[in-house]
Each structure stands twice: as C-alpha cells, then as structure tokens.
C-alpha cells in the first residue's frame, strides 16, 4: 500500500503541500484529482522519490520511497512530460530499463510491442506525443511494477489506445495486486476505473473516499410541491448544500443517504420528484466550489 502522512513541502514562500495524508490500498486504483496548482504533481514527485519532503513521510509497503532503490525497482512512473535519451529507440531504451529493473519481463514487452504496434527501432524523438506516451507505457509496464504512478497517462491517446492502456492497468491490479495512483483531468474515465478518489485543493486533501461511497452520498434532486410550505417541510432536516428554484421546480443538491432523502421528500407528497447521483465530474466541480454557472450545468 501507499501511505503518505503529514507531508509538507514549501517552494520558497509558497506552501505546495500542507500536512497531507494519502492512503492507497494494495491492489486498488486511486484517482487523484484537483484543479491546476492544487499540488497533484508535487505529491506525485514525492511518491516517485524525486522530491524530498520538508516534513512527513512517504512510504510504500512501510518503506520510505526517497533514495530507496528496493522500492524504486518496484515502482513504475509515467510522467506528464516524458523524457527519453536523445536519439534512442524503444529497443535501446528497453535495454537500459532491463539493466535497471530486476523484474523486467521480456515477454510482456514483446506482447505489448505487438499489441500497440509501435516501431521498435524508430527514434523516440521522432514519435508523436501519443506514440511516445505508448512507448513509455510499454516500458513502464514491462518493468512489472508493484506500484504504478501515472500523471495524465491518457493525455494525447486515441480512444482505442486509451481502452488498451486501462485494460493493462486493470488486469495487473486484478492479477498481480498492483497498486495504482493516477492523476488525470479526464474524470469520466477516472470514474470508470478508480476504486477511491482523493480531491486535492490548495495543497490539502479535501476529500479522500471510496468512489462508490462518495457518489452515493450526494444527490441531485428536482422536485415540485403543492405549496411552498410542503417544500419547506420536505427539505427540513436534510443536508441541503445548494438550492434554487426555477418556476415551480426546486433544484437541489443534497448530501446524505439516498433512502433518507427519498423518505423525507415523499412525506411531503411531491407533484414531481426526480433524484440522480452526481457524476465524479459533478462532485468535483461542486466540491471545488465551482462558479454559479458550473453548478447550473450540474443541475441542468
């Protein structure tokens, strides 16, 4: 498992991470989301041993990551901005990786090379951004990592390749118990694969929960009542976090158990009642305190 405790990091006077805690269960996929500048990449650079914490601990399987070769040999990392040695091909990069990672699987490498149909001897610098991302993915997954850290892994990939990438990730999680932390702005795809979610804001963890639990806890409600008194009666006692009225229709976002909300609304005999769970994207926008226009789009 990946465990971050009380992580703090300052860049000069800017506090990038403040007393941050992260828990990623073994064999799970953790989605790290947050607005730009929230500290996602800084956290990832600590998780991959690039940066040293000012204070706090960053551990994998109970061992510190920084300057720990044993852990790093079990760690795969695909950064947002890739780097390959100049004039190197996939073949020569694979030879380099093979010397560094003891669990390197030549079979996996060959199989993925066929699957992604990349030219092994072509210069990586001549590849398109998407092809470079695939090449990095092949190299990283061929290391058979126990921990996989992905920073915008599907950025620039076409839908077919994206599907392949997620399949490899999900299969390794299922078959080998690989632990994954992925940061992406593509929340629709994150919603499909993540087991748990952490929302980072201003260097602090705003929410860290199981995805299903997170989604079942907040609802989008549309309802109309016979009278205003009935409406007030229906929502009294519920955790209404946003409410607005359009004609006779009430639009609300309510936090709480689905059954509790239903029970309260039905008790007021609604003329119209519709309740939907929020998508991850909607949860994110709402939790990040989106502008009124953003909230409108969630409620629409």
């Amino acid at each position: 498992m990946i465990n971050v405790r009380g992580l703090c990091k300052k860049f000069d006077d800017f506090e990038a991470l403040n007393n941050l805690n992260v828990n990623v269960e073994k064999g799970s996929i953790y989605g790290l989301i947050g607005v730009n500048g929230s500290g996602k990449t800084t956290l990832i650079r600590h998780l991959t041993g690039i940066l040293k914490a000012d204070s706090g601990t960053v551990q994998m399987d109970g061992q510190d990551v920084y300057d720990n070769i044993d852990i790093k040999q079990r760690l795969g990392y695909i950064p947002d901005e890739l780097f390959f040695f100049g004039s190197y091909s996939l073949k020569s990069m694979s030879a380099f990786y093979q010397g560094l990672y003891p669990h390197w699987s030549a079979n996996r490498y060959e199989a993925m090379l066929d699957d992604f149909a990349l030219p092994e001897r072509g210069k990586l610098s001549k590849f398109s951004k998407g092809m470079q991302k695939q090449a990095q993915f092949i190299l990283t997954m061929s290391c058979m990592p126990d921990f996989l850290i992905l920073d915008e892994p599907i950025d620039g990939l076409d839908p077919i390749v994206r599907k392949k990438v997620w399949k490899y990730v999900v299969d390794d999680v299922a078959e080998r118990g690989m632990t994954v932390l992925v940061s992406s702005h593509n929340l629709k795809e994150m919603e499909g694969i993540c087991d748990s979610i952490g929302i980072l804001s201003g260097g602090e963890m705003k929410i860290e929960r199981d995805l299903d639990e997170l989604k079942s806890d907040i609802h989008k409600v549309q309802a109309a009542f016979h009278s205003a008194e009935d409406a007030e009666k229906a929502f009294k006692g519920l955790n209404v976090v946003h409410r607005e009225k359009s004609g006779s229709i009430e639009h609300l976002i309510i936090r709480g158990a689905r059954e509790d909300v239903e029970r309260a609304v039905y008790a007021a005999d609604p003329i119209i009642f519709d309740m939907l769970p929020l998508s991850l994207e909607e949860v994110f926008i709402f939790e990040m305190g989106g502008e009124n226009d953003d909230i409108q789009s969630i409620l629409a």
Binding site: R45, D67, K72, Y77, P79, E81, F83, L100
Partner: peptide, 21 residues
C-alpha cells in the same frame, strides 16, 4: 545535462538510483 530540465531531472531521479549512485 538531465539536471537542467524538469522532465529529465524527474525521470532520472524516479529511476532505481540513489542520488549518490
């Protein structure tokens, strides 16, 4: 030279090396 670009510095230091090695 890898030290002078953020991406290369990051990738090299995420690999299984200590800073000393």
């Amino acid at each position: 030279g890898y030290l002078h670009r953020t991406n290369s510095a990051g990738v090299m230091h995420s690999m299984p090396f200590t800073r000393r090695s």
